[in-house]
Structures are given as C-alpha cells and as structure tokens.
C-alpha cells in the first residue's frame, strides 16, 4: 500500500471531521457515563439530592450483603449453562443443517425465530407455560400420571433459576446455530474429505478437522454468551423479580432494585462497577482477538 502517497493526498483533519459528531455523542452518552459510575459508586446518593462522597463504604457493605453473593453466584450459574447447552445444541444443529437436506431453510428459520422476540415477550409466554395451576408443564405431567413432579416452576427455590435460564437457552440456541453456520463456510471441505479418505470416521473428522477450524467462531460464541449472561435482566424482571428468596436474583436485577426501588443509587453504582469489572476481563480478551486480526 502506498502509505506515504496516501498521506499526502488528504487533509489530516478529514477523519476527525467525520468522527466529530458520532464520537462526541458516544463519549457523552456511553464512555463518560461509564466513568462517572465509578465516582457514583463512592457516594451516597438517593437520586434527588446531590451525591455525597463516602469512599469505599458501598463496597464494604456489598461484601457483607448475602444477596450480592447469591446474585454473583447466579450470574456464574447462568454463564455455566450458557456456554455449554446452547453452544452444543447450536453446533449440533449447524452441523445437521449445513448440507442440502430438504427443508433446511425452514428448519433454520424456525430454530432461530425466538431470537426476534423481545425477552419480555419470551418471559411472559413462558411464565404461562410454567403456571402452576393451569400451565402446560404441569398439565402434561398430570396427564401422563407424573403429578408428583408438578411444580411451581418459578416459585420453587430449587427450580426457579433453572426455569428462567431455560427460556434464555431456548432463545439463544438459534443464534449460536447461525454463527456456527457462518463459521462452517470457512471450513475447508478438502481437508474434511481427505481425513475421511484417510480412514477417519465422521466423528473423528469432526473432532480433529472441523472443530479446530471452527475455533475462532467458538471464541466469539463463548464471549458473546458470557457477556449476554452478565447482562441478563429482562427475563428475571418479568418472570420472578429475583424471587423466591433471591434465588433467581442476578447482579443486574439486584442493582436495579437497590437503585430504583430502594433509591440506594450509590450502592447500585457499586454493584454495576463489579459487574463491569467481571465483563472487562472478557471484553479485553475479545478486543485483543479483534485487534490482533487488525494488525
């Protein structure tokens, strides 16, 4: 590339003129607020009067708050489910549908159709399925004579979190499938064929030839899944509001309730800083992958 020639061709201010407005908006609405949250987390603030500085008191309180640890644990449970079940199912679907089988387009469309629904809609229609007295699950269990297994799916402390995560998984599988279908486009078919000719069976060729080539996409899928798990809010808010006994509380909901229901906004800010710190590990990891490809 004629780097020096190009440099002379344009006004050095040109890129900044194009960047000015979008970058300003981004700094004011996204980057600035992000930094401001750090300050807020060191204050006591009820949302009405001015925030007053109290140092690291909020964080101290946080580490004494059992709800914080329950929420943190639930976020990690969410992550654990999210980077396994939808990834495996999505990959399996992508493998099954990545060939000319009849109706593959319809299969694909139906599997990822939940993606277009808002989480609020998903949460509501699933809440109905989970309904203890009239919902589908208990009705089916009773119909097949398993009424002893019928639950208050969202009100039972043992099952509530799993029931909520199930909805998230239902929505996520199609997304992972689409990503892997895109990833499979870049898998070299000759390598796969060569491995089969060399006597590998289908499973061996999948594990040793296809999977390694899908690795970059797997990184993307896993990072996206983790970030989505940490952002989880809507489903919990609509389905359980964190209950029963905080068993479905995640950091985002905990933060929302403390800030906007209890008006402990400094405390809420501290929760979101912790959430941010956990995300940051994965954001940096992702940025490094992206930027490495850049250079």
């Amino acid at each position: 590339m004629g780097k020096t020639k190009k440099a002379k061709l344009y006004n050095p201010w040109a890129p900044w003129l194009f960047l000015a407005v979008p970058l300003l908006i981004y700094l004011v609405w996204v980057i600035g607020p992000m930094l401001y949250t750090f300050f807020l987390s060191l204050t006591k603030w009820d949302g009405l009067s001015a925030p007053s500085f109290i140092g690291i008191k909020n964080y101290r309180k946080l580490f004494d708050d059992p709800v914080f640890f329950i929420s943190l644990k639930n976020n990690f449970v969410w992550i654990a489910f999210f980077i396994t079940i939808p990834v495996i199912l999505g990959l399996a679907l992508a493998m099954a549908l990545n060939r000319d089988i009849r109706g593959s387009k319809i299969f694909k469309a139906l599997f990822y159709s939940p993606m277009v629904l808002s989480l609020v809609v998903c949460g509501l229609i699933w809440s109905w399925l989970y309904n203890p007295t009239q919902g589908l699950f208990n009705a089916v269990l009773e119909a097949v004579g398993l009424e002893h297994m019928a639950q208050g799916w969202l009100s039972d402390p043992t099952y509530a979190l799993g029931s909520v995560i199930t909805v998230a998984i239902w929505r996520q599988v199609g997304y992972v499938m689409i990503l892997y279908l895109a990833g499979l486009q870049s898998v070299d078919p000759f390598l796969v064929e060569a491995s089969l000719i060399d006597g590998a069976n289908k499973w061996q060729s999948f594990v040793h030839v296809i999977l390694p080539q899908l690795r970059p996409m797997t990184v993307v899928v896993v990072v996206i899944s983790i970030i989505d798990s940490l952002r989880a809010f809507d489903l919990v808010s609509v389905m359980t509001r964190g209950g029963p006994y905080n068993r479905t509380s995640v950091l985002a909901n905990f933060m929302y309730i403390e800030s906007f229901n209890n008006y402990k906004m400094g405390y809420g800010a501290a929760i979101s800083v912790i959430l941010f710190m956990i995300s940051l590990i994965f954001i940096i990891f992702y940025l490094r992958v992206v930027m490495q490809e850049e250079n």
């Binding site: 609405w29 949250t37 985002a252 933060m255 809420g268 800083v273 941010f276 954001i283």
Partner: peptide, 9 residues
C-alpha cells in the same frame, strides 16, 4: 459493556 453500568449516569 454491560449497559447496567450506564443506567444511573
């Protein structure tokens, strides 16, 4: 970003 960090500001 987890947009929760932007909510309050």
């Amino acid at each position: 970003l987890p947009f929760q960090i932007l909510l309050l500001p």
